[in-house]
Design a protein around this nucleic acid. Structure first.
Lengths: 124, 124
DNA sequence: GCACTATACATGCATGCGCATACAATGCCA
DNA sequence: TGGCATTGTATGCGCATGCATGTATAGTGC
């Protein structure tokens, strides 16, 4: 009785429920097995997909759904763990490239099957 | 190029993007115009829909997507603002009923058009 | 070259969250 | 009835977040 189905409200509730179900499971499993949060995983994946020069933080903000400050600290944490390197940009010295390291690729590769398994299990 | 579309991964990314788009807009507008967070609005709405005896916190946890501790504090904030009353339960004195107040119904009624307008604008 | 504005990232601060735990009330079983 | 696990809620704590702001660099008009 809580899902009207056709109304906007019902659709939004379904989206909320689905998002909560999947992201809670992802958070739990990724944290338990790989010590990664969902946002950390997402950032690593985007970095792995970008070319080898890495990615301007500016650009990552658009991909990962997160404030600029949150992203800055996220990259900081990943850098502290050695999963990412910060490289300052020669052409525009305000800019910072985040580049995934080999260790970062390794951790991402380890975590990806877990991620997929959770999606398989919870998304439908 | 970031949305594969058919894969689980693509579907999950779409869900993330949609959720972020809607909830960021909701958060902003509800906060700006009615000083309510999205979770506060959701809780009020659930309480308004439940019968007049209110709702056990325990039960609300299942409806709102939130930990028990977060809900306890959320109800605390709403109670501080006079939008909700805590009533202890006679049959089981561990239990707490949260009951929406008239003021709570008023605030909810004020905020609902904003909520609907944002859904209309961002959900599709 | 000099002021002024805009952009990119970092950081202080307040807040909400989840986890673990504390506490109170209940149920159960000997 | 007495002990013990269970359930419902509150709270201490650490952490990630967003907002506002700070700092450095870039661009632009004069």
């Amino acid at each position: 009785m809580s899902t009207t189905g056709s109304s906007l409200m019902g659709e939004w509730r379904q989206l909320l429920a689905r998002h909560a179900r999947v992201s809670e499971a992802l958070e739990r499993e990724l944290e338990r097995h790989h010590r990664l949060s969902v946002t950390e995983f997402e950032a690593l994946r985007h970095l792995a997909e970008s070319d080898d020069n890495g990615c301007r933080l500016q650009q990552l903000v658009d991909d990962v759904h997160m404030s600029q400050s949150a992203l800055s600290r996220l990259i900081g944490r990943l850098a502290d763990e050695g999963l990412v390197e910060r490289r300052s940009c020669a052409e525009d010295r305000r800019g910072i490239f985040a580049v995934i390291t080999d260790e970062g690729r390794r951790r991402l590769a380890e975590a990806t099957p877990t991620h997929e398994a959770v999606l398989e299990r919870t998304l439908r």
